[in-house]
Design a protein around this nucleic acid. Structure first.
Lengths: 234, 234
DNA sequence: CAGTGGTCTAGACCACATG
DNA sequence: ATGTGGTCTAGACCACTGT
């Protein structure tokens, strides 16, 4: 089937295997030869074959199980990798200048819908920050954020008129777990005003819950200005 | 800083390194010891340390360069992995029954905007298929798809009244590359009618270009019914 | 129990980036 | 020129799982 695969290395093995899947040599749901057999065929070692197959499995093409072997997946579970940059970086990367604008902030008990969602008491206090992110003087994103009081040290002393909550949290809570949700929503009167768009415009909406060691730290709704696209390549 | 890391293996090394990043032992923008040094510290080999660091780099925590070494990234470029299931599976997984409905199909030259986007001549012929995917008798997604004539064998003999283009393509073109784009759009009159929603509703929109060996095969716009959410974890 | 992938070791050479 | 990560080899033992 394949010939002259004289280039060496796990990458070329990956490519050959992918080609054989694409051209049907190894049909969906069928099993590949064992690592040992492939190592012999490619005049390589099992270690190298293993890396090639392991990566292909991670990319969603193969399923590997001890004892049974390596199987070609029928409908490859395609995975997209989304990069989630800081908004400042995202805007800069698009070649625009970035500006942060503070709309409002203050301490308040969690609204009931959010307390329920985070599985916290409605008496939990939070800092509610609303802000705008501009790209070249056009509103790019409206950010509506709650930060749970007591979840992060130093929260009481931050002035969100000066620094965006995102930037501050990234500095303060370097690594955490995140739940993301994407959807669409019609702009209500206030969001429309803030984003300088007609009421009812379809906005791309991102919701994000950040957890630190199992406890929620912050919940954010981000409303993107009309026309925003989130893209990915596989 | 860290103690009693008696568990062995590249996974435990990953965990220890992550902990040291989180607790500030290795601050952002600072350099880690070399693989050799870490191998000594963990009583392991460079191969094993290499795997741990390689995976952490792939997950966005580290940047590795020959000669300079391994650096802790300031703001980890968080990446989300989105699973892109077949819509039939997505609906079934949500516990609803799936039904496919054919709206229209026919052969036509590519519209200019699409030809430009795919870098093809406007004289290129394509099959244009429009269809609906129902979840429990509610419209779930409207699919507006062009399939490039000649890009796939057997296209002329398929009856898209019987099989959804997605299902057919998955069977026919097992492996391919995909560009994805997500956004929001207001429902126009026709889409509103098809999805049984008021005109102007904010819809979550997915656009997808599928490539086979560098040539475009199909372009799809998928309009999701109001309320649709795409979720993931980091 | 036996077969297959998962991982580790010890050592080597190579590729690339920096001084 | 030199240091660091990138990868390969050859061999070994282990862990899971199907029979």
């Amino acid at each position: 089937m394949t010939q002259l695969d004289q280039t060496r290395g796990y990458k070329s093995i990956k490519q050959v295997v992918l080609n054989r899947i694409q051209d049907g040599t190894w049909a969906p749901d069928s099993f590949l030869p064992t690592e040992m057999e492939l190592a012999t065929e490619f005049s390589s070692t099992r270690t190298t074959v293993n890396r090639a197959l392991r990566e292909l499995a991670e990319e969603g093409y193969l399923e590997r199980k001890r004892k049974s072997g390596t199987r070609v997946l029928e409908a490859p579970v395609r995975q997209a990798r989304l990069a989630i940059p800081l908004i400042r970086e995202e805007i800069r990367a698009a070649g625009a200048s970035y500006r942060y604008f503070h709309v409002s902030s203050g301490k308040t008990p969690l609204p009931a819908w959010l307390a329920g969602r985070l599985n916290l008491s409605t008496e939990t206090e939070a800092v509610h920050v609303r802000s705008l992110h501009y790209a070249d003087e056009s509103p790019f994103q409206f950010e509506d954020r709650w930060i749970i009081a007591g979840s992060v040290a130093g929260l009481d002393t931050v002035d969100f008129k000066m620094i965006s909550p995102n930037e501050w949290l990234v500095q303060t809570v370097p690594v955490s777990n995140v739940d993301l949700s994407f959807g669409a929503t019609n702009a209500d009167a206030e969001v429309a005003r803030l984003l300088d768009t007609p009421e009812g415009s379809a906005l791309f909406l991102t919701e994000r819950v950040t957890w630190l060691r199992g406890a929620p730290v912050t919940f954010t709704r981000m409303y993107h200005a009309p026309g925003y696209r989130m893209t990915t390549k596989l």
